[in-house]
Design a protein around this nucleic acid. Structure first.
Length: 679
RNA sequence: GGGCCCGUAGCCCAGCCAGGACAGGGCGCCGGCCUUCUAAGCCGGCGGUCCCGGGUUCAAAUCCCGGCGGGCCCGCCA
């Protein structure tokens, strides 16, 4: 089969394909089926013009350059595609009139072009829909549900690390965005033919888990009450512990301020304590006994923070006294795993940071760092100093470090000898590359971690892992906010994925009940798909304001819109007997209103997915599926499909409908949405 | 103070990288359409200083410079 990637050495012009009549073209059999009809069309036009510019002006402009200039007019009256003539001037110094003649001559023989009209400075191209749709239908008929499948020419081994939320509280909607985006990346890379592995990094060695474990121990290792998920319960314990420790610390500072007569500082601290107490009383409503007991127990400690650090250090050293740390983290992770399962998201590997230390990988990295030429001191502590590396523009470019970004040294160890997250992450990155023999590692991590992720690449480079440094990608996404609220895990103020999914499921259930039948498992599939749709419809680089009211508004759930449209198309096909009578298709009926629009959009789909798989921008795929659904629904309303009397037209309509179902199914699967035959 | 991201209708978002024809959707609001293939749908209407100011260009929402507004980062947290 001919893919666009083959065009470079097998041009349709030099091979003469397009000089055949279309019937001859298809008689040559399925080996000539075009995987991406739209790209094929554009490239063939660009090649023709490129050739003409060469012979008329001796211009050596590449077809791919010209292809970029080829635009779709906003209004159909102006044609299907169009060249702005002035843009061609940079390749050929002639005047517009002459350029127009060149383009006209170049394209007048093109078998897929029906007409060419100059309007002002545009040369408007009208595609011969009968022939072009034939090309599209041949492709669809041959590829069936494989139509639009992206392909990676490299077939790489890729690790995608995502979610990786710390095991101290349930997944909140920010982690939800991470989970959904990461899963999309996994799915599309896999679909494109790569070997992909999903990994979750459990950071059980950090300070946060130590806080949770500290509270957990103080309470005598309590179990969650009936009906409460462990991540939710221990999330409250974590927040209560952290808040109480903070309150006690501020109270001590306040007492000091009072003694030294700093009245302004005293008042300021008072305000902060007041706010923390408000947070605490909110937590108290949920777990009153636990909060009271924690307050009593922690107040007895002379220096709770020191005890927490000690616990963390003991855990890193693998001492028995710290066993409850792993124990409680494990329980939280089980809750998180349940949430992911409800979303239909699975991981291949759960990597415990403490195991990484046991395996000696962290020691290995630190040893290597000490002998690195970039080893130095920062704030009196062992560090990797990047100043020299950063001066080298070539290295900056290779490691994708923005110009002007200053990167402070990376401290390797705390003064108590314990390691820091980013140090351990160096080891973890190597583990990901080694274990999976990965060509590429993609970390899906929030944008606020841009700096440590940059330090990570520099550190790898500094330690001599240059290839790994260059093959490590930080896929960043913006935070999710609630209107008017600020979120804080440390204070237990967050909206969880569980509650959002539950609420959405309820809304869907209510809707279903009003219609008669209701099924909880179906409702969940609709709700979670709506959730994913929402998370993927906005560019990851944009902050997402998660308005629960809006999310629960049925009309706003555009996930169901896609699911509904798919079910509708399936239903039509079912009623029509299932099989598309390919041989009966009358392509001369394709150039009509919305039918043409649909064929046009469907023919573009493989090109869209291909680009999405390369640039990993889910919102482009969402937008395209939306457009397909929109036009299909309008078309569905405007004329009968299965009930069409004329045989050739009916076959055409069924083929279009089949195309819609294939494209929506393929696209929704990539987005991780549930594809439902009925809704 | 420095760096990065965002700014397009009452609200949410696409278009910006690769500049082109009267700037596209969705929500909301107003009014219509189920004896016909799934009405979770469709049709019509209302709604815009593309944050502001310069510059480049035949042509700027898009590129450049300077502002303004919002967010994030600059920790012996992650």
């Amino acid at each position: 089969m001919i893919g666009l990637s083959n065009l470079a050495n097998r041009s349709p012009w030099t091979s003469g394909i397009l000089h055949f009549s279309l019937s001859q073209y298809f008689q040559r059999g399925s080996t000539l089926v075009e995987k991406k009809p739209y790209s094929f069309l554009r490239m063939s036009i660009a090649e023709a013009v490129s050739k003409a510019l060469f012979s008329e002006c001796n211009s050596k402009v590449q077809p791919s350059q010209l292809e970029l200039l080829l635009e779709e007019p906003r209004r159909r009256e102006f044609g299907d595609l169009s060249f702005p003539l002035p843009r061609l001037r940079q390749y050929c110094g002639k005047g517009m009139d002459e350029l127009w003649k060149v383009v006209k001559k170049a394209l007048s023989e093109h078998p897929l072009i029906k007409d060419l009209i100059r309007v002002g400075s545009y040369s408007n191209i009208y595609v011969d829909m009968a022939k072009y749709s034939f090309l599209f239908f041949e492709s669809l008929k041959e590829l069936k549900e494989q139509y639009g499948k992206p392909f990676s020419s490299k077939k790489e081994r890729i690790v995608v690390e995502y979610v990786s939320a710390n095991p101290v509280h349930p997944l909140h909607i920010g982690s939800g965005r991470n989970a959904v985006i990461g899963d999309f990346i996994y799915r599309i890379l896999k679909e494109a033919g790569n070997e992909v592995e999903r990994r979750y990094y459990v950071d059980d060695v950090g300070l946060q888990v130590a806080y949770l474990a500290y509270g957990y121990i103080k309470l005598g290792k309590p179990q969650p009450p009936q009906g409460m998920k462990p991540d939710h319960y221990y999330g409250l314990i974590y927040a209560a512990t952290a808040t109480i420790v903070d309150i006690l610390k501020l109270k001590r500072l306040q007492a000091e301020a009072k003694n030294s007569g700093e009245s302004e500082k005293y008042a300021q601290l008072g305000d902060r304590i007041h706010r923390l107490l408000a947070d605490l009383s909110r937590l108290k409503e949920r777990i009153p006994d636990e909060v009271n007991r924690l307050m009593d127990e922690i107040s007895k400690e002379p220096d709770p923070e020191a005890s927490i650090s000690k616990l963390m250090r003991e855990y890193e050293l693998g001492l028995k006294s710290s066993e409850p740390v792993r124990e409680v983290a494990q329980k939280v992770i089980e809750g998180i795993r349940q949430t992911l399962a409800a979303l239909g998201i699975e991981m291949d590997k759960w990597d415990w940071e403490s195991d990484l230390i046991k395996e000696g990988l962290v020691d290995e990295v630190i040893k290597k760092a000490y002998s690195s030429p970039y080893f130095g001191e920062h704030k009196g502590l062992p560090a990797l100093v990047f100043a020299d590396l950063l001066k080298d523009e070539e290295i900056r470019a290779k490691l994708r470090i923005p110009t002007g970004l200053e990167v402070p040294p990376l401290i390797l160890r705390r003064s108590d000898g314990s390691t820091l997250y980013t140090t351990r992450d160096i080891a973890y990155t190597l583990k990901k590359f080694r274990e999976f023999k990965a060509d590429k590692v993609i970390n899906v991590i929030a944008v606020e971690q841009t700096l440590p992720q940059t330090q990570l690449r520099l550190a790898l480079y500094a330690l001599g892992y240059e290839k790994e440094a260059e093959s490590l990608y930080h896929y960043s996404y913006e935070m999710v906010n609630l209107p008017g609220k600020s979120m804080s895990g440390r204070r237990g103020a967050y909206v969880t994925v569980d509650e959002v999914i539950n609420m959405m499921t309820e809304v869907v259930m209510n809707f279903m009940e009003k219609r008669g039948e209701a099924s909880r498992s179906l409702a969940l599939k609709i709700a979670r798909s709506a959730f994913k749709y929402m998370m993927l419809s906005a560019s990851p680089s944009k902050m997402l304001v998660f308005d629960i009211e809006r999310a629960l508004d049925r009309k706003q759930l555009s996930g169901p819109y896609l699911q509904y449209t798919f079910a509708r198309a399936k239903s039509v096909l079912r009623k029509a007997g299932g099989e598309v009578p390919w041989e009966q298709i009358d392509c001369s009926k394709a150039d009509v209103g919305l039918r043409k629009e649909l064929i046009w959009l469907l023919s573009q789909y493989p090109s869209v997915v291909q680009k999405v798989s390369e640039e990993l921008q889910p919102e482009d795929l969402v937008a395209h599926l939306n457009k397909v659904s929109d036009i299909f629904n309008r078309w569905y309303d405007s004329e009968p499909i299965a009930k069409e009397a004329e045989v050739g037209t009916r076959a055409l309509k069924l083929a279009i409908t089949y195309g819609v179902s294939v494209v929506l199914e393929n696209g929704m699967k990539i987005l991780g949405m549930d594809v439902l035959p009925r809704i």
